[in-house]
Write a protein that binds this DNA or RNA. Structure first.
Lengths: 202, 202
DNA sequence: CGCATATTTGCGGGGTCCGCAAATTTTGCT
DNA sequence: AGCAAAATTTGCGGACCCCGCAAATATGCG
């Protein structure tokens, strides 16, 4: 990878990171594209070369994490499907949700509160769900590759992917709703265990 | 219900309907808010009194249909949970997806093609998914009311709601992807039958 | 009928996002 | 190193979206 692509990846990350941080700190509509660009050290116009909207930049980190589930799934063929799925999901979401997106130098409680406000923002919820849907397609492809199903004609891989993302979303939502009484790990394994039975590889 | 609320409901419907029709005909970004308002016979400013965005107006019909699933679920207590769910879903989505949103006077094939383009539009996908999430919350509430669970503390109702919406979305997506070889009815019952087993009422 | 309450509308402004072309940076080649 | 080709960044301009506000209009009620 040349210098060119490395810089691009850096800018990409810097922009999405700045977008998340500023939004958590101030709230979605008190952050201008200009602010994000400045925080990342590029011109406002460049922001839109990387992301087609403010919301997309914020949701990018979520997308990235979800995509890694599909990636992890591809890296462990052979194993029973649902074991591999559970492992792949836990590897990405094992640590507490907030801590994964936690910037080094901020008060933890304040940050969590900001995250809660952020994920409640209507414009962002749509974009996050869209990110989940993109990841879902990748997971479906990974499942099809594993079971030898046809991604176009079979319902099964899509159903599995949908169930996985549904379980993940529900577990995260529960964790954000309640006050972290139960570890995310358990929520995820429970949720996945509940959806798996009817979807054992055909 | 007074004349006042009836007129509001009419305008609401007229706007969302016009938004859908124009978008299917021309494509999302070739429809201006002004066009929709004109087609519904109100001023552009009034459009935003009813919907907070163009995308929301288009997704409204989807939202409405999904909400009716929750409503139907509340209207038939006593029945075994998953029987009631399957029935409620089928009642809303039984007819072919396109035909339900089909305006009287358009060529069917052309309309379907337009719908396909529409649901592929990124901005709309986010909004549709958000509508699904809103409906999901209602379904979760309906399930909790039925099983006596706690909507705040229990994972179960949310998991069921998520599984239902996931099955519905997957079935619809499959139907739009393939060329209607299989009736939606069967896709929905199959999908629901697959997710139900691990989620039998506890 | 006439008043209180809702709704609609026009106006104005802040913001987002994109196309385009010029300027700048990186790469590949000699 | 030096130079040309290719890609990226940037500024500018414009179209559009969305909302707050206050005036105008429509509706419900006594």
């Amino acid at each position: 990878m040349g210098l060119r692509e490395r810089k691009k990846a850096q800018t990409h990350a810097a922009l999405s990171w700045a977008a998340v941080r500023l939004t958590v700190e101030r709230g979605f509509d008190k952050v201008k594209v200009e602010d994000i660009a400045e925080a990342a050290g590029v011109s406002p116009r460049t922001f839109n070369n990387y992301f087609s909207s403010k919301a997309e930049a914020i949701a990018f980190r979520h997308l990235d994490r979800c995509l890694r589930v599909a990636e992890a799934l591809r890296e462990r063929p052979g194993e029973p499907l649902w074991d591999a799925i559970t492992d792949s999901v836990l590897r990405q979401f094992a640590a507490d949700v907030e801590s994964m997106t936690h910037p080094p130098a901020t008060d933890a409680a304040q940050w969590t509160a900001g995250v809660r406000v952020m994920v409640a923002e209507p414009a962002l919820r749509g974009e996050m769900l869209r990110a989940g849907a993109v990841a879902e397609a990748e997971i479906a492809a990974a499942v099809a590759a594993r079971t030898g199903g046809d991604l176009e004609r079979d319902l099964y891989p899509h159903l599995v992917a949908s169930a996985v993302m549904g379980a993940v979303n529900t577990a995260i939502a529960h964790h954000l709703r309640t006050d972290a009484a139960v570890p995310v790990r358990r929520l995820l394994t429970d949720a996945l265990a509940r959806v798996a039975p009817g979807l054992s590889t055909p």
